[in-house]
Design a protein around this nucleic acid. Structure first.
Lengths: 338, 338
DNA sequence: AATCTTTATGCAAACGTTTGCAGATTTCAT
DNA sequence: ATGAAATCTGCAAACGTTTGCATAAAGATT
């Protein structure tokens, strides 16, 4: 360290001075700090990390940063961690299991102090996270969470979300409701589907298998499904799509094909993507409170870093509530004009 | 290293074996690799980084991840770097100069191998990046770039963008065009404004000072400006907003106030945010090709890491072309119905 | 069998920190 | 003055890699 040389002190004294160690006299501290400023000294985080066995860095794995919901969470996670003096290494799995596995390994190599993960659509086996478990490094799953892998889980209330969305459609007079679900390998779609079914049952609306579609929720797939739905009469009078991209795409399809929303068919999306607010008609959607979720993720992480838990510890699952935001796409009764 | 112990080899041999060094026999390599796999060995990137004086990590500073354009760039930067075996530490300055300065320092402490930056709206003094210059670590600025700070710059063609957008409005029959600009501390707004002025001049449309507004381009500010614009007749017949959030907000304002778009007033935005496509009417906007820009940023970074340049080197500036995407908000002649 | 190559391995230092322990200096009460 | 206590500083090891150099083993050439 040049500061030490320059001042004729030992590196240990300098190190302690910079870290405000009590054993160092006020004068030396002042001298050292001054020289540090003068020389533009910046500690080497890698060296410190190596020595301390911690990096003050958190790894984040999400399917893609361009999707609204994970992006919104990422924003707050990042800002929150910044406040705590932690870095965030953000990685995209691009919804590929293989990439996810690889990322877990390289993030372990980077010796992140914790990991926050929203899994791939197809991740059902979570054993590639074992390496973090083995080394007792905190892992927090959010949104797309494992079903029976023991780890901290923070998720939206997907059952209730699915239930309220469907119930709302029923209350608005719908009796033939299409459900567009993601692949059931992903747990949250299982629960939304369960919510959908439960709502139907509670209101004695018959469940029809052919009214439920499963596929990755991309624009292309949504268009294909729209084609199928409206290929033949009778049209459904309600559609509950489990993401907003799908809902928006369906809305556009309807517009182009002269199907009136909400008069002919009502639409509800999921996630409360800001886009739902700006389309015409605006789309009813289920808010998942990404900010809250992000904050909870960081809190959980910081907490787990502070107080490690024994190997078999069962982390309590946190559920972030959900709220239906009613907009024009589901307004009024089917017969009445808005 | 436990592998060494386990196999009765020295750590150097193991290290070389894992790095496929030519001096190591095929058998030992095989043995070592096998044991590494068996023990679940993952190299400690911090130790390697410390020794090699490189981290295989790039730092990225953007105003916020939730904005479309920087987010779109980030996505490709991240994926591209992943391919090269680099990590990305993403940081948000939240458009605060102070935060930006701090981030530069902590990213230097992390000893990133390179830095990609889209600056704050208010960054005019770039001297906090000097530390990277001094240590000869590559810095690439994109989108919001410095005016006369010597560094690699990759930017959109903002002059031409402003020019074509304005020209388009003129060609559609507009003669009284409002320009909503960001603060001129940010270079790109200077150039878009210059493009706007140039287009007016070329088509002999008088420039009116009171038709130009400067403020941060948030929704709230856009609403306030909309209020001012439509407070009194005559209304403008065209609006060139330098971002899409502003354009969308204006469109909504018009809709709520019974001002027809594009019949009464035509609107053009900037960035080709996907939202411009889903509103009604869809909004004409200027595409800036974020993917191209992201790729260029990574290429530049990889290039600069490979071949360092002497202190005074003047990096050639790269300009990514721009393209006007015409949509409904600017269609037809002012009098004719679409 | 002796020498020279070639090939494979190990030693030890280095990267920049932090920290337990020991030692040096000062302060204070006696 | 003397010793004890309190205060400050330095030595050296450690973190997990990589790498120049030396050395050992094996193979080839006489």
């Amino acid at each position: 360290m040049d500061i030490a040389e320059e001042l004729g002190l030992s590196v240990s004294t300098v190190s302690r001075a910079l870290n405000d160690h009590p054993n160092i006299s006020a004068k030396t501290k002042e001298k050292v700090r001054k020289m540090a400023r003068k020389l533009g000294y910046r500690p080497n985080a890698m060296a410190a990390g190596l020595r301390n066995n911690k990096s003050r860095t958190i790894g984040l794995i999400i399917p893609r940063i361009s999707m609204f919901f994970p992006a919104a969470i990422t924003t707050v996670v990042q800002n929150k961690l910044q406040e705590y003096g932690y870095h965030l290494i953000i990685c995209q799995s691009n919804d590929s299991l293989e990439q996810e596995q690889q990322l877990v390994n390289t993030l372990y190599s980077a010796r992140v102090d914790g990991l926050a993960v929203s899994a791939t659509l197809s991740t059902t086996d979570f054993s590639h996270f074992d390496i973090f478990k083995q080394h007792n490094i905190p892992v927090v799953f959010f949104d797309r969470t494992p079903k029976d892998y023991q780890a901290k889980v923070i998720k939206g209330d997907d059952f209730v979300g699915g239930l309220t969305a469907t119930e709302h459609l029923i209350e608005q007079g719908c009796r033939d409701i299409v459900h567009i679900s993601g692949p059931l390998t992903c747990n949250l779609y299982v629960e939304r589907l369960a919510g959908y079914k439960s709502a139907l049952q509670q209101h004695k609306v018959p469940f029809k298998k052919q009214r439920v579609f499963f596929h990755e929720l991309t624009r292309e797939n949504a268009l294909a499904t729209a084609g199928k739905i409206f290929a033949q009469q009778p049209y459904p009078d309600g559609i509950f799509a489990t993401n907003d991209t799908t809902a928006i795409t369906l809305l556009q399809y309807c517009r182009e094909h002269g199907i009136r929303v909400p008069e002919d068919v009502k639409i509800v999306g999921y996630s409360n993507d800001p886009r739902t607010e700006i389309v015409t008609p605006s789309i009813t959607s289920v808010d998942q409170f990404p900010a809250t979720m992000g904050e909870r993720v960081v809190s959980a992480l910081m907490d787990l870093i502070q107080t490690r838990h024994p190997a078999g510890y069962r982390h309590p699952q946190e559920i972030v509530p959900t709220q239906l935001v009613v907009r024009d796409s589901s307004a009024g009764s089917p017969k009445k004009k808005k």
